[in-house]
Design a protein around this nucleic acid. Structure first.
Lengths: 331, 331
DNA sequence: GTCGCCAAAGTACACGTTTACCTGCGTTTA
DNA sequence: TAAACGCAGGTAAACGTGTACTTTGGCGAC
């Protein structure tokens, strides 16, 4: 049905090898006349190379697989979009999969990546521990983004955000605005991810001579719902004038709760988020937050992966992205 | 490097054909003993079939291509996610591309779909007119979602939203709340897309005996930014007590503008959106909107496409999704 | 006149599967 | 007892490319 290299070869009266050479610009050794004939024929017939066949023989699919917990989460939407852009710029296509944060699903996706012979894998933040055994068996280069991972043979590099600094800056920002009773909302308490942020928060408090009060801490999950629920709970049990949220969705949930209880933002209670997702400036109260440069880190990770694919000898160091506070209307 | 069917064949002392038959459950004709041997060997070696090779020979990639203008737009995020889920349920993988609403980019993506031999294409709403010539040449089944398209050979079906009814219901909802001065915000004025919604709005007005006032109409684009800007402009030039927005991002932008000008929602001005994106219930003022059942229509479209792939003789009718108003706090 | 060389193009195999068709061989059946 | 059949499995071609190696002339050098 579709036109192949053979059709062109037949019509041009040459061999498929010649056509292939011309089309791949290995044509230093091809006569100008046949070259033109092949080229114009290809255009005329609307020839599109069959990537499957090509990948099969070259052992290069020019596809990179991306795993995120859920693309519906605005942070990951933005991340995936930026990865895709960066990859496309280098001639790669992306295959994105949602793991739901469930190990079995992630493992299935990884296996599928193996079947599709993706050239590289981008593993985004998630609470699940990657199946390093499978990863080793797959023998596909991996770049991790904000994700803990054990030793993996083909780990190219990791790009992480300096969470401690981000949390520190956010807290200090609130302190500078005059707050001393600052609530802290974050995800799974046992994850190092959360512990590091918490230590940043504590450091800022200590530096300002403010006592740490465990009553103000709520760590469970990075969901909007939890931001809402935790704020309601805080409102009932203690008093505070600011909330330091470790992601923007938590902050959005917190603001809903504050409004429901008649608290004005930022007059009665200031709110700061973390991530700086594209939505945060668009809200009714444009959200002050910690900009973690999502698109930038996505680009860095993708570029590192592809650089490595182009030249596996290149040694890449772990990369840390430094976040900064952006102050809008909620603080 | 990776283990192939040949390795298994060699180790099991059988031919590759036999291994293939076992692995594809064409094993009615295979002895139980060799069957088990092959199966356990495959498991043991962690064999993953090479989809490229498989697709090459079967002429079926089990991949469907999706084109959206921009996955960062929450409506499309949700759409893509639902399509992906539906596709995966049927054993398909999705390849999603962002066209930016630019014809050339879309065309390039379509060509790339051809190269990757995707089995089917899902074309989501966009202002660009698809390259029907290329689409015909590609010979790949297509399903359009809320998108105008000329006659295309391999068009399976279209799934559309009843925009007229949606706009009618939204307007009527506002009228029932006692509003008579109702602003109307929508996208590109010349698109039938917008015209149809406008006629629904007018119908509701007429039914209630309310005169149509062109002063209240603002049509330009479906972006947050325009919702903000148009509302500011309306506030300056005329008076109204409600805004009927033809998508949720416009509504969110409108609410920002209202707050900036000290108008309370819904006391001073009611706002209704359209789409019911997953964000709308999560906002500080949970948004009243028209639920167009995004995930549902995505499923319907994907299922229709895959049903067709499974049995091309099945004739599918155009599908229209009926939206309904969901009233939250902004009306 | 032979040798070597260069340009231009062709040959043939490999990539990892699937599958139509064929081969033995043991068992049934007339 | 020979023809027919069914079972278990093998052979080989095909899918569309890329590429190492080979062939074919033509031409200049010795």
């Amino acid at each position: 049905m579709a036109v192949t290299i053979k059709d062109i070869a037949r019509l041009a009266g040459v061999s498929t090898a010649t056509v292939s050479k011309v089309l791949n610009r290995k044509d230093s050794v091809i006569g100008e006349e046949t070259r033109q004939k092949v080229l114009s024929l290809a255009r005329e017939l609307n020839y599109t190379p069959n990537s499957l066949a090509r990948s099969l023989v070259t052992r290069k699919s020019h596809v990179i697989g991306i795993i995120v917990p859920d693309i519906l989460n605005p942070y990951f939407t933005e991340l995936v979009r930026a990865c895709d852009d960066a990859a496309r710029l280098r001639g790669y296509t992306t295959l994105v999969c949602n793991s739901e944060g469930i190990a079995e699903i992630e493992t299935a996706h990884l296996a599928s990546f193996g079947g599709h012979r993706v050239d590289g894998i981008l593993l985004a933040a998630s609470d699940v521990i990657p199946d390093t055994e499978l990863l080793d068996a797959l023998c596909i280069p991996v770049v991790c983004m904000d994700r803990e991972i054990g030793p993996v043979a083909r780990l190219v590099t990791t790009v992480d955000t300096d969470y401690r600094s981000g949390a520190f800056q956010a807290t200090r920002h609130l302190i500078e605005k005059g707050h001393t009773r600052i609530a802290f909302l974050s995800g799974a308490p046992h994850r190092s991810n959360t512990q590091i942020r918490l230590s940043g928060y504590k450091d800022a408090l200590a530096q300002a001579g403010i006592a740490f009060d465990p009553e103000l801490i709520r760590c469970k999950e990075f969901q909007h719902r939890f931001g809402h629920q935790a704020t309601l709970d805080l409102l009932k049990r203690t008093d505070f004038t600011a909330i330091c949220c470790m992601n923007d969705m938590l902050a959005i949930g917190a603001m809903v709760a504050l409004r429901e209880r008649g608290r004005r933002v930022p007059e009665d209670c200031a709110v700061i988020g973390f991530d700086n997702i594209y939505l945060s400036p668009l809200l009714e109260h444009p959200l002050s937050t910690v900009d973690r440069r999502i698109a930038h880190s996505a680009r860095v990770a993708t570029t590192a992966l592809i650089d490595f694919l182009d030249d596996p000898n290149r040694k890449v160091e772990a990369i840390t992205i430094m976040p900064t506070v952006v102050s809008r209307t909620t603080t």
